[in-house]
């Protein structure tokens, strides 16, 4: 929240939600931090190096039972989720590919003392494996085969669009690295039409508010917990939900309450004048208030109450 590189941190959070790994099972701050650093290091570049690094990421291996995946006893968990959730999407691989992928990933062990993952030869199936129309013999060739599939980049583009653009189909954007894809998304004509359609994730709502108000993030964790999104604790390997699932009676109440607590700490001098409703929109980067919200805000004189209502408003719940 105190980062200067906001775009880079937003992308790191995107990848965290994408390769969703929870500290509740990993139980190591060291391994979780290592994974975040992998996202920072490779997240903006081409997807190949990122996938190569993630297939040997210790936190991910622990999370998806890679530890238990051996030559004698292949475990499909990591192999399935790599293709379904992280790189290709449902329908772009077969059950046989899942089984074959599991064989390629056998033998990777995490040493908790050093925080490193290493290949243990006696647990590894070193036969070349045919899958996805190709042949691979180690983790890197597996990663390269996956990212070379025609489904891979459209899948990543779709996931980026869902978090940065809005619901529905992503516009056609080409590029082999994440930064190019993101630039393409933000400059596509369809992007402008998404105003008001992308529901903010709780982290985006809280971090955005704290930054816009120039506050420290201290004390905001209970809001995230009540809203259902605590970083490093995604509910499942599928990551956090998107869209209207965040718009609930309880989240509305939490935003009302959190809005008051944030407003109590903020500098509200700019919200006392006759133009206070427009000033509030500027402060919170809201394109404009609906007639409904405008009427409520106009009737609110107290600057702190005004700010609290702006933060809780329907317009501020969406991008």
């Amino acid at each position: 929240m105190v980062a200067d590189e906001t775009a880079a941190e937003k992308l790191t959070f995107f990848w965290h939600g994408h390769w969703a790994t929870s500290v509740q099972k990993v139980r190591s701050a060291h391994l979780m931090l290592g994974q975040q650093q992998t996202f920072r290091r490779y997240g903006a570049g081409p997807t190949g190096p990122l996938v190569r690094a993630m297939l040997r990421d210790p936190a991910l291996i622990v999370w998806l039972d890679g530890q238990k995946n051996t030559r004698k006893a292949p475990n499909e968990n990591l192999s399935r989720e790599v293709m379904e959730l992280f790189t290709l999407g449902v329908g772009e691989y077969t059950e046989a590919d899942v089984k074959a992928g599991a064989r390629v990933l056998t033998g990777w062990q995490v040493d908790r003392a050093t925080g490193q993952a290493r290949l243990v030869p006696r647990r590894h199936d070193d036969q070349a494996v045919a899958l996805l129309g190709g042949k691979v013999d180690d983790v890197d060739s597996y990663a390269d085969l996956i990212v070379g599939q025609s489904a891979h980049l459209p899948f990543i583009l779709g996931r980026l669009w869902a978090r940065y653009g809005g619901p529905g189909q992503a516009p056609a954007v080409s590029g082999r690295d994440t930064t190019t894809l993101l630039k393409g998304i933000c400059t596509a004509p369809a992007f402008a039409a998404t105003a008001g359609t992308l529901v903010k994730q709780p982290v985006e709502w809280v971090v955005g508010a704290v930054r816009q108000l120039g506050l420290k993030p201290d004390g905001t964790e209970p809001f995230l917990k009540a809203l259902g999104q605590v970083p490093l604790r995604p509910p499942s390997v599928g990551g956090w939900p998107e869209g209207a699932a965040w718009l609930t009676t309880s989240s509305t109440l939490t935003r009302l309450r959190a809005g008051q607590k944030l407003a109590a700490k903020a500098d509200v001098n700019g919200l006392a004048g006759a133009d206070r409703v427009e000033a509030l929109a500027d402060l919170l980067a809201v394109d404009g208030w609906s007639d409904r919200t405008n009427a409520v805000l106009t009737a609110t004189k107290d600057p702190r109450r005004l700010l609290a209502l702006g933060l809780a408003s329907p317009e501020y719940a969406v991008h």
Binding site: P167, A195, G196, T197, L198, V199, G243, A244, L247, T248, T249, S251, T252, L253, S290, D291, R292, T293, A295, V296, L309, A312, S313, P314, E315, A317, V318
Partner: peptide
């Protein structure tokens, strides 16, 4: 009042408003 529907607003925004009424 915060939950009042506005004609033509995007579905997400309409749902965000409806939550006030539900609440």
């Amino acid at each position: 009042r915060m939950g009042a529907p506005v004609a033509g607003e995007p579905a997400a925004l309409a749902r965000a408003a409806a939550c006030f009424g539900d609440l």
